[in-house]
């Protein structure tokens, strides 16, 4: 095992970097999409049910199955990975953003309106900052999930540690099969923990002291 690691150290590190980079970029994209959708959903009351249903159903689709649907559309490589990871990453953020934005006291919003804040100013200066802790929680859930989804997306020859897991699976019984699978899995778990820790710090830095738990 140790030998396996030292021989492939550079490759493992590169794959870990790729994996993280894929997840971070996809989650970032997902955050933007989810926030835009959430603002739309909260603004138009009737969309709320639709959004909740889509998030619930979306999360039940096996990622492997979705991959099968995406590959014919965008081919193999990095693109299907980004599409899949972003899709799954969007759902928890969207759900939390809707809950968070909805949870802002109506009296505060009316107060903002009564003081002459435009709808955009009220959204950016009152609603988003107050919903932020809930949104960041969604972001953390989303990031954890995306680590796993990114591993599966490697089936389409995408980047990251997922490749090791598949190599391990395809060589079952072989000399390094267990090593490949273990390094891939443990690597994903460790990366997930590190990223989560960073997000906790980010949440603290971006949340007003007045509403910090």
């Amino acid at each position: 095992m140790w030998e396996f690691l030292t021989q492939r150290w550079a490759d493992v590190a590169y794959r870990a970097f790729q994996h993280t980079s894929l997840v971070v970029q996809s989650v970032a994209l997902a955050t933007v999409v989810a926030l835009l959708l959430a603002v739309l959903v909260v603004g138009v009351g009737r969309l709320r049910g639709v959004a909740n249903t889509v998030s619930a159903i979306g999360l039940t689709i096996p990622s492997f199955a979705l991959l099968g649907l995406v590959i014919p559309l965008v081919g193999i490589g990095t693109t299907p990975s980004i599409v899949i990871v972003t899709f799954y990453a969007t759902l928890p953020i969207l759900r939390n953003a809707v809950v968070g934005l909805d949870g802002v006291d109506d009296a505060l919003l009316e107060s903002a309106r009564g003081m002459g804040m435009s709808p955009l100013a009220s959204l950016l200066r009152v609603r988003l900052p107050l919903a932020w802790p809930v949104i960041v929680t969604g972001l953390r859930v989303s990031t954890q999930m995306s680590m796993g989804v990114a591993a599966i997306a490697a089936y389409a020859l995408g980047p990251g540690l997922g490749g090791y897991i598949y190599t391990g699976l395809s060589q079952i019984g072989g000399a390094n099969a267990l090593n490949y699978a273990l390094v891939g899995t443990v690597g994903v778990v460790l990366l997930a923990l590190v990223l989560d820790g960073l997000l906790v710090v980010l949440a603290r830095l971006t949340t007003s002291r007045g509403i910090r738990a």
Binding site: D105, A107, L108, E110, S111, A112, G114, M115, V126, P129, L130, S208, G210, I211
Partner: peptide, 14 residues
Amino acid sequence: GYVIQGGSLFPHMS
């Protein structure tokens, strides 16, 4: 000016 019950201050602002 607009003053409502409890002050309705924005909790995230000083």
